[in-house]
Design a protein around this nucleic acid. Structure first.
Lengths: 246, 246
DNA sequence: AATCACGGTTGACTTGGATCAAGCTAACGC
DNA sequence: GCGTTAGCTTGATCCAAGTCAACCGTGATT
């Protein structure tokens, strides 16, 4: 982003965080709110925080009191077992919410780690509950977001439970592509923010298997890969991989 | 259940469904409500419906307008792919809620099927939203329930992504045992309501693998199995299976 | 009592992905 | 410019779980 970064830094920390002038508003929590409602939501989202690549936004076990909206950047969430095994449970990008897992026990149940320098908006949860008691639209949309998370997880369960390695990776790439598109980026060309190992953990595969599948997709002409740079050359090829049982 | 079943039948259909005199109330949606609040919830849960073993409570694609609390019985939910593959996404028992997946698209995204004759309470969702705008405790508990569902799904993702067959089955049995205990049943002895194939689908395994794992657990003295009847003989043995990487 | 059907068990064999190991690439610090 | 390191690729081998197939047990039907 070649911009006047010095003055940018200053203005960012001075400008009051505001959903009402955020370009992600229609992807994020404020979806469907009126202008007047938006302003009331602004009052509650007072802090925007920078998270450096590699840093934790929160850790499993920490007390929960806020959920977080990603303003910019890219995160992963993972859960750890005592014996050291861990599972990446999701990758989150701008406009998506983090921390919903913490509501049920009042403590976070997973780790959220920035995969690139990111910015997040903190949303104090009890105040969100308060406001959503007053703003019907906000309440309903929040419920939709939680429900969407449940449905998304069912999709991952399907993927882990019934798909073979290449199907999983194809599904993963198509999902990323679709989410980048929704944010106005190219559907066909993007940089992966995560390592092969993190992809593998998410998809229930070893990093070598992920790497081999990338190579095979390239041989077949479905994609062009160079390290983290991906170009999708044949969306239908990838889709076909997923649907017809080999 | 050796009771006066004829009069029982009659009284059941006559008695107005009421959370306030339901013995599951502390496991279910009304958790933590005052008496006065309970009565307001009663007003909204007007219908109790019987679902016969094998019947659908709802199907993927159907319009969503209510969530359901299980009064008695046992359900599974599953999602189907076009090519015929399906994945069981959960097994639900008394006091648990069904249908939360439907909120985000206003259509159900999975099938809910009774695994034994069951009874459910319908909760019209827009009325629930209305009431939870008025009753703080209800709102908060509902959010907790949704969040718990997300956390549960993360657990399943961990299971599918990182565990081997016997670990998965051990985790499954311990989870069932714990949920039966919470409902006042024996933690050590229960009947499975689902087939080996359904267990396998849930755990991402084939039915033969499930069957072999049961046999091995029996050989090792962890459990006694006879068809669907399970007795857990060594909880710690099962727990140990899960924690230390073989 | 005989038949049927469904679900479960067990065995023999196959295979997809894991594991182990070596080498490559790109980015970074000095 | 050169070494170091983290991440990626590729090959060889192995093994857990899948597949295929036969058979068994239980309960329902006649």
């Amino acid at each position: 982003m070649p911009q006047n970064s010095a003055s940018q830094e200053i203005s960012l920390s001075l400008i009051k965080t505001a959903c009402s002038n955020c370009n992600l508003r229609e992807l994020c929590l404020p979806f469907g709110l009126s202008l007047e409602e938006l302003e009331r939501l602004d009052d509650l989202i007072s802090t925007r925080r920078r998270i450096k690549r590699g840093d934790h936004l929160y850790r499993a076990g920490e007390a929960f009191d806020s959920i977080y909206a990603i303003r910019s950047g890219f995160f992963k969430t993972d859960v750890l077992l005592e014996d050291g095994r861990d599972q990446v449970t999701g990758f989150q990008m701008a406009g998506e919410l983090l921390g919903l897992d913490g509501i049920c026990t009042e403590a976070h149940t997973c780790n959220a780690i920035a995969l690139e320098d990111s910015e997040i908006c903190s949303i104090p949860f009890s105040r969100l509950e308060g406001l959503s008691r007053e703003i019907h639209n906000l309440q309903h949309h929040f419920h939709k977001v939680m429900s969407r998370e449940i449905v998304r997880d069912h999709g991952v369960m399907m993927l882990l439970g019934t798909m073979r390695a290449e199907e999983r990776l194809a599904a993963f790439l198509l999902n990323l592509s679709q989410r980048f598109t929704a944010r106005g980026f190219s559907h066909a060309e993007f940089y992966l923010r995560m390592t092969r190992e993190e992809i593998g953990s998410y998809l229930g595969l070893k990093l070598e298997t992920v790497s081999r599948a990338f190579s095979r997709f390239q041989e077949e002409g479905y994609i062009a890969v160079q390290q983290k740079h991906i170009r999708i050359l044949d969306v239908n090829g990838l889709k076909a991989l997923m649907t017809h049982r080999t």
